[in-house]
Amino acid sequence: MRRTSQFAVALTALLLTACSTGGGQTSSQGDEAPLAGETVELVVPYDPGGGYDVYARLLAPYLEKCLDATVVVKNEPGAGGLLATSKTFVAPPDSLRTVLTNTVGVVGSQLADAPGASFDAAKFSWLGRVSAEPNVLAVAADSEFKTFDDLRESTKPIRFVATGPGSNEHVNSEVLPELYGFPAETITGFDGSDSARAAVLSGDADAHILPIDSQLDGIESGDMRPLLLLSEEPHDALPDVPTVADLPPEQGQDATLDALMNLSETGRSLAGPPGMDPEQMAALREGISCALGNKELLAKAEKQQRDVDPLTGDETVNVVNEALRAPAEFTELIK
């Protein structure tokens, strides 16, 4: 009996250690780094395994080195990413809680006045942008649509797939047909981009708009055919795919196109709670810039085909504010 209870105690101890890793380590290590010895939370608003999770776990060790602090990656899925973002909005300003936001979704849902957008994107303490991959429109490799012009000339509605209203996929699928003036419908309700792609591959739907890093594996395996890059400049990974600069939209749609481009510029960005202490904010901004400039991190990102396209904190604020100034005709489309 004694041996068994000792075993139980040992198990409990093991469990407690497992829980407390990353807990408070507050031993200060001199005054060279303002956040030395502190614990910074890096919240991923989605389940493990997705793009945001990959970026956060890639960034964390380098951010630790640059800040001389402990960085804990935490998954807080919920409400399509808005739950963790809203929690950050009301977090204490000194909580050192940062969230890697789907800024397109955050700004988009605020513009669309979606239920659940209980925050003001302009008020977050923006700490920097990690990446902003352009979106790619792709169809199945065996689709009847060989070029984007085929799609534009279609008389029957093009069927786009998307996870849910407010998602990046959904915003783009609603706006693009308007820009180019072709009939379309968006089928929502898929539980993830992967199931949505399955519907395109099986021929149940026609087209799918996703950020390039999510689209690339399907393109390289020969399952998907890219038709349009939703960007004004070409991308190294898909040099032959036409951009919106090559295929200009209908007349009078410039403002809408600009709004869409501005929105995608916000990309994956790091935010802290509003009203963060200026010294803490400066330290975090510097640490993030330092980590995103690390050669080893960049090499690892390239190996995973993940773009890194950093912006400083100030630049991120500008990009977010620019996107928030979208004209009414754009916000009407994504509502």
Partner: peptide
Amino acid sequence: FGIPGSVGAAVLLGAFLITGLNPG
């Protein structure tokens, strides 16, 4: 297809890309 059938498989998909494999 690179379409994971579960959350665990989704993380494994990341391993495909890291090791330079294209599902398909």
